[in-house]
Simulated scan of single mutants.
Amino acid sequence: MKILKNLTLPIIGILAWEALAIYLNNPVILPKVESVISILLNPGVGILGTGNLIENTIVSIKRVLIGFFIAGAFAIPLGLLMGYYSLINDLFDTTVELLRPIPPLAWVPLALAWFGIGESSMHFIILIGAFFPILINTISGVKSVPVIMIEAAKTLGGSTKDILKSVVVPASSPDILTGLRVGAGIAWMCVVAAEMLPGSDAGLGYLIMYAYSLSKMNIVVASMIIIGIIGIILDKGLRYIEKKYFCWKKMMK
Rank of each mutant, 00 (worst) to 15 (best):
I3Q: 06
N6R: 08
N6F: 13
L9Y: 10
I12V: 13
A16R: 01
A16P: 06
I22K: 01
I22V: 07
Y23F: 15
Y23C: 14
L24M: 07
P31S: 07
V33P: 06
E34I: 04
V36G: 02
T50E: 10
N52R: 04
I54N: 04
T57I: 10
T57D: 14
I66Y: 06
G72D: 05
A73F: 15
G83M: 13
Y84L: 00
F92G: 06
F92V: 13
T94R: 03
P103S: 05
W107G: 01
V108W: 09
P109M: 08
P109H: 09
A113G: 11
A113L: 15
G116K: 03
E119H: 01
L127Y: 12
A130C: 09
A130R: 03
F131T: 10
F132T: 11
P133E: 12
I134E: 10
I136S: 09
N137I: 14
S140T: 14
G141D: 14
K143V: 13
V147A: 06
S159A: 09
K161S: 15
K165G: 07
S166L: 13
V168N: 04
P170D: 12
S172E: 12
S172R: 01
S173T: 15
P174R: 01
G179H: 03
L180G: 05
L180K: 00
I186V: 12
W188R: 04
M189L: 07
M189R: 03
D201Q: 02
Y206Q: 12
Y206N: 11
L207W: 06
I208V: 11
I208A: 03
I208W: 05
M209L: 12
Y212T: 12
L214E: 03
L214H: 02
L214S: 02
N218V: 07
I219N: 00
I225A: 04
I229L: 04
I229Q: 00
I232L: 06
I233K: 03
D235L: 07
R239T: 15
C247D: 09
K249W: 15
